[in-house]
Design a protein around this nucleic acid. Sequence first.
DNA 1: GGGAACAAAAAGTCAGACTTATATGTCACA
DNA 2: TGTGACATATAAGTCTGACTTTTTGTTCCC
Lengths: 233, 233
Amino acid sequence: MSTTGRGLHGRVLDTLGPEITAGAYPPGSVLRTDELAQRFDVSRSVMREVVRVLESMRLVQSRRRVGVTVLPAREWNVYDPQVIRWRLAGADRPRQLRSLTVLRSAIEPVAAGLAARNATAEQCADLTECALGMVANSRGHRLEGYLFHDVAFHRVILTASGNEMFARLGDVVAEVLSGRTHHEVMFEDPDPAAVTLHVQLAEAVRERDAARAEKLTREITEGALQELDVLAP
Amino acid sequence: MSTTGRGLHGRVLDTLGPEITAGAYPPGSVLRTDELAQRFDVSRSVMREVVRVLESMRLVQSRRRVGVTVLPAREWNVYDPQVIRWRLAGADRPRQLRSLTVLRSAIEPVAAGLAARNATAEQCADLTECALGMVANSRGHRLEGYLFHDVAFHRVILTASGNEMFARLGDVVAEVLSGRTHHEVMFEDPDPAAVTLHVQLAEAVRERDAARAEKLTREITEGALQELDVLAP
DNA sequence: GGGAACAAAAAGTCAGACTTATATGTCACA
DNA sequence: TGTGACATATAAGTCTGACTTTTTGTTCCC
């Protein structure tokens, strides 16, 4: 389910990008456009476009008479969805997953508070529906169905907050939740306490209780953090 | 102080990017690469590189036989530093400033709590130094000096949190704080209460009091939000 | 009216020549 | 020996023109 992939350019990017984010080239390494073009068997034009995109992600820097320099991780645009996907697919997936979960724990409670103030009637209904879907799939190893509703639930919260910056983190949350179900060990049914919290959160938003919504979300993300500590200490 | 600017490619990007984020072309509008190249008097190769970068920011989408379609704002990579800068320079600066301030109010308290647990001795010293610098410049219209130390202070907090996602928001916070001093009306000296809060926050981090650090930061960002309500209601 | 063949349009790709900036090495001079 | 000016090589940057591929919209036939 890659966003790029289309065209020669996208295929090269999907190989070179992950290599860089995986640390295959130590920071300061110099690549040459011509050599890369040769390696991937594409023309210089295509290779230049790839380098330009990597440069806009701050993964590399292109300088005359020097070449394409790989930048240290501290420079990377770590909020770029492609970079996030590449890093989650790579070796430092655990570290990345932790970073993102901590980010969630900061954002989502505030977003939920705002959602309680701003959510439309339709969004409230969606929320309730998602929560019910979670309940319905919380037993009997129906993990896929549970995940689907869980992701949808958090997306609605983030969107309903009315803050575009929060809304854009929907994909990140989806990635984190999906990762927990698919990549990490998750044989057992979801924690019943978490399910209850989601139902209560939908209630709180519907009743415009911002403080309670924030508190409940804090408990949810707190749980996600603890879960992470158990899985990857 | 533009990151790009270097080269023909950067100059075109710095014109076309802001135009799109300013909403000069309604979503769904179709641009043609050849026409754009003609308009900016550059070759198609350069124009293609520009389009590729805009595409990676999800501002546009390039499709065969159709052209370069402008995407709706909901699709934009609003965390991309360039996009942030372009939007802050444009007409919906107030809305953008509010979004970012809300984001700060979610992130910084959590970051401060983590900083209290993870900050090195050197970072604690830096923090105290910055706080003292703020105090020293808090009276007599020394706004530039105050801003400098304020920005540095928040950068240290975000970095000391140990979370890379938080650390990368240093530039955003710098932009918001700088905007308050330069663009918005800011004739008076900074609020003495805010200065005190920063001094206390440096203390709390030094004493490893995570809960107090978080609470103090929440008060600081709360102040920033109220300030925004006064300036742009 | 519906489906298949066709034509046009725009992006995608390539190859090659030329330009420009700049890191680095050379050499003369102090 | 150190230092500055100058020359040179290098790799990115730019331009041009030709060709390919995909997709859309039309037309024509059943």
